[in-house]
């Protein structure tokens, strides 16, 4: 039976009154499975009228490439060469998924803001709110007085875009999107601690004295994201159609070496 989690309202901007949403708390999975599930949720986004929010983690440290990145660029980051690689459906730079909390948010087309960049702002504002409650201040990169640099660093967390969230000058959260006719997928990672596969990137636990637990962070994000999106979350799981779609995505793309290394 579904569990109902009610959320408070806030004055944050809303793309739409999204109403009933589905919350999926996934077990740790490997990279191809995680990316196939996100892609399947997007592919079937039109089946639902409300948003789907999923939290997940990684069964083993994994490097994900941005959709347009070349696998050959891996050679420029020796620390992560031993980690398995997966290609994301979304853009941006490579991520080492190890000691992080990962979220994905899928909206059906009717709920997607005309300017989808707003969704980065809305979600990241909610995340900042959540951390404010833990007395941790996350800064939006665009609000800092730092000259933007046009960089194409291999790792996403060494790049900076306006909506990235920084802690003591270090990027700890970034998100990326993929759009399709049926809706929009936004997913992102909150870096909890530095990974041996990317020791140059400190995480939350490396930057504050007492970091909240992953469970406490996740619960706070669920509440704040519900408020920001005007949604009430019902805990659910993938539908049979989404599971079938994820299997197809895994076989044709994310679990397929040729597809992962297509550029």
């Amino acid at each position: 039976m579904d569990t109902l989690i009610r959320t408070a309202t806030t004055e944050l901007p809303r793309p739409i009154t999204l109403g009933g949403g589905r919350l999926i708390l996934s077990e740790p999975a490997d990279g191809p499975t995680n990316m196939a599930i996100d892609a399947a949720l997007l592919r079937r986004a039109g089946d639902r009228t409300g948003p789907t929010l999923r939290f997940y983690s990684w069964a083993n440290a994994t490097l994900s490439l941005g959709y347009f990145q070349s696998v050959a660029e891996r050679d420029g980051h020796p620390d992560s060469l031993a980690a398995p690689v997966v290609r994301r459906a979304s853009g941006g730079g490579a991520l080492v998924h190890d000691r992080e909390l990962t979220y994905s948010l899928v909206l059906p087309a009717e709920a997607v803001p005309a300017d989808s960049r707003r969704l980065y702002r809305i979600v990241h504002n909610a995340i900042r709110d959540a951390f404010r409650d833990f007395n941790i201040r996350l800064d939006r990169f665009a609000d800092l007085e730092i000259d933007p640099v046009a960089d194409r660093s291999f790792l996403c967390f060494q790049r900076r875009t306006d909506e990235d969230l920084l802690l003591h000058g270090y990027k700890v959260l970034g998100s990326a999107q993929r759009k399709e006719r049926g809706g929009l997928l936004q997913h992102g990672g909150l870096l909890l601690n530095a990974s041996p596969y990317a020791p140059q990137l400190p995480g939350l636990g490396d930057l504050v004295d007492r970091a909240p637990s992953m469970e406490a962070i996740r619960q706070s994000l669920i509440e704040k994201l519900g408020a920001a999106l005007g949604s009430v979350w019902n805990i659910g799981e993938l539908s049979s159609l989404e599971k079938a779609e994820a299997t197809l995505e895994l076989q044709a793309k994310f679990g397929c070496k040729a597809w992962t290394e297509k550029r």
């Binding site: 459906a89 979304s90 960049r117 970034g174 999107q177 759009k179």
Partner: peptide, 13 residues
Amino acid sequence: GEVESVKAVSPLY
């Protein structure tokens, strides 16, 4: 085809 902008990948139809 596909395009990328601001870390978002979008299809061309």
